[in-house]
Design a protein around this nucleic acid. Structure first.
Lengths: 340, 340
DNA sequence: TATTAGCACTCGCGGGTTGAGAGTGCTAAT
DNA sequence: ATTAGCACTCTCAACCCGCGAGTGCTAATA
């Protein structure tokens, strides 16, 4: 399993070269380009070994070699040298955030856009959500006599809404009174905590509102990932590996559709932990051609979210990893300040 | 310009046939399939005339004919016989709406999904919005000492939010008081009306809030179309005319990107007026292969929205038009009941 | 005059062939 | 252990070729 130093170096060159050209890399090409102190024949011998170990393959006899998923895996774990993000770029990004965006969802959206644009890949960012959301504030707004809007502000400053059909006609004034009373009782609570105290809410309307509120909170919990922002699908599909139309459809199905979670780890991830999933390591067939770099981020009071970059397996990992990591820390910083 | 009856009939058959097969249609094929009482030779003669008039073309010598944009135009305007929507289908759709969705945006989203699924095309639906939005209710929620969330409920029950940085520390109680006072003064007003009365708001905080509110309202107006729901992109891209990868990218760029308005008439449209845009009639290059069927719908107090179906020019117009029309009337009905 | 049978012609498409080029694996010499 | 030399393999693009579909034209017909 342990490769000689020369083979490691060679594998690294093969990955780098293939990542930048998208072509199989041949023995003589690599010798020339990197001025190796050995002949192509020697390189070929080494390549045979690397192929036997499963790190590279030939697409067909007498073509150059391309890395296998296993090759990429080895690369990202022990070979890769991360490119550091230039200082000015950090500044630019930071500036964008302070300038253009306000609020959690804006930030998540912007983060996805930045990742996509800078890495020429697709990017998915989930807005920070709490695994056990608490109510911060409740408001009731009358739409007409028998219809009211329930507006919830969660602890993490997310706003939810739902229309509620009432049994009897209730005026805005009455609704306001109810909301004020309820706020004092259920603000700060989770769905479960509300349900425990439920029998106390005697007027039918109040019980109705509390029920709806609890339902909404519970749903917000379960569907935290629904608030995922996807950007740069076109960047991804522009890559040569997806030139043939059919593969595009599979990916579209997955990414444009509502089944993102299948494709990408949107579930809570220990923060700062960068996770890389390569090609066939994905559970889904449609993702076999892709790699995903993900990082979790967290904020005050249990807020959680993830940032992911989706590219071809032939991804520029040394560039993607530091950027994803930086964006993760930036999100944490923003959250920290926001809820200071 | 006026075609003989036989040529009209022939053009109709050519369109119908091409729409269902996606292939050029030849003279003998059409004679056999529809048991025409004339010979292929006669049909060919007529085809030459139709071609001279610009209604059909041959993709290359010795292929069958396909309709031109002009041919489709003539077809939808004078030849097409709309298929009536089966009663049970209407029931099913209506049921879906009462069952699954609640609230304006849900409806718009669902409408797009229904159109896309039933017509195997992409569909874009804008949520109903008011060209001059009025405030229904304002709420201020404290996030922390110097940060407050402004939550606006518009007349049409849409909810907007924005975070506001405060000069001084303000408690939730104070914010609630401010909100109550402001509500009595600016509820029901438009952005412009708020700005007129502005000098009156003496405490700095109130002026700040009113300003932010007016800005939000104004932005909601201008960007009404941003609330457009796109569904079924995959259905569209599955069509054979987009099999070759490059054309897909242009469309993706347009539809997935935020520049939908360029592609599709999202602007207010006189309600009930069905508009069909065919191929090169579109201003955008990327849409040259597509046709769009749009209808405007309206609701109480000036609410407006549009529903569109985006398909290849080879679209099943006789099916699309009635469905779009029906969905438009359904949206109006729902809005009417909602704001009863 | 409108229709039609007959026929030569055109063109796209799929299949097979071919030659160039890239890259390999092997062998024998260093 | 390395490498020069070489025969070998395989892809790719270009090309040809024959088939089939469908046409346009012409001359005969109702």
């Amino acid at each position: 399993m342990t490769l000689t130093e020369r083979r490691r170096k060679l594998l690294q060159l093969i990955v780098d070269e293939h990542v930048s050209t998208a072509q199989p890399v041949g023995s003589s090409a690599i010798v020339e380009k990197y001025r190796l102190p050995v002949s192509p024949a020697t390189v070929r011998n080494e390549m045979v070994s690397l192929e036997e170990e499963g790190y590279i393959v030939q697409p067909h006899t007498s073509a150059g070699r391309i890395p296998t998923d296993r090759g990429y895996r080895y690369y990202v774990e022990t070979l890769m040298r991360e490119e550091s993000l230039p200082q000015p770029d950090e500044q630019t990004i930071r500036h964008q955030f302070h300038q253009a965006a306000r609020g959690l969802e804006d930030w998540a959206h912007l983060a996805a856009a930045v990742l996509a644009a800078r890495l020429h890949s697709a990017a998915v960012v989930t807005a920070p959500y709490s695994p056990e959301p608490r109510l911060r504030w409740l408001e009731l707004v009358s739409v007409h006599d028998y219809l009211a809007l329930v507006v919830l502000v969660l602890q993490e400053a997310r706003v939810l809404q739902h229309t509620l059909t009432l049994e009897d006609s209730v005026s805005q004034d009455e609704l306001t009174t109810i909301a004020r009373r309820l706020n004092s009782q259920i603000a700060g609570k989770t769905a479960a905590e509300m349900r425990q105290g439920q029998p106390e809410f005697s007027p039918a309307v109040e019980a109705l509102v509390v029920n709806a509120t609890a339902d909404l909170l519970a749903a917000a919990d379960a569907s935290g990932f629904e608030l995922a922002f996807l950007e740069g699908l076109r960047e991804l599909l522009r890559q040569p590996e997806f030139a043939h139309g059919e593969r595009i459809l599979g990916l579209l199905e997955l990414l444009e559709g509502r089944n993102l979670p299948q494709a990408i780890p949107v579930a809570a991830l220990p923060p700062h932990d960068i996770r890389i999933t390569i090609g066939a390591e994905h559970p889904t067939d449609a993702m076999r051609q892709c790699s995903v770099v993900t990082v979790g981020y967290s904020g005050p009071s249990g807020l959680r979210g993830t940032l992911s970059v989706v590219g071809p397996t032939r991804m520029r990992y040394p560039r993607a990893v530091p950027l994803v990591r930086y964006m993760g820390s930036l999100m944490e910083e923003l959250l920290g300040v926001y809820f200071a």
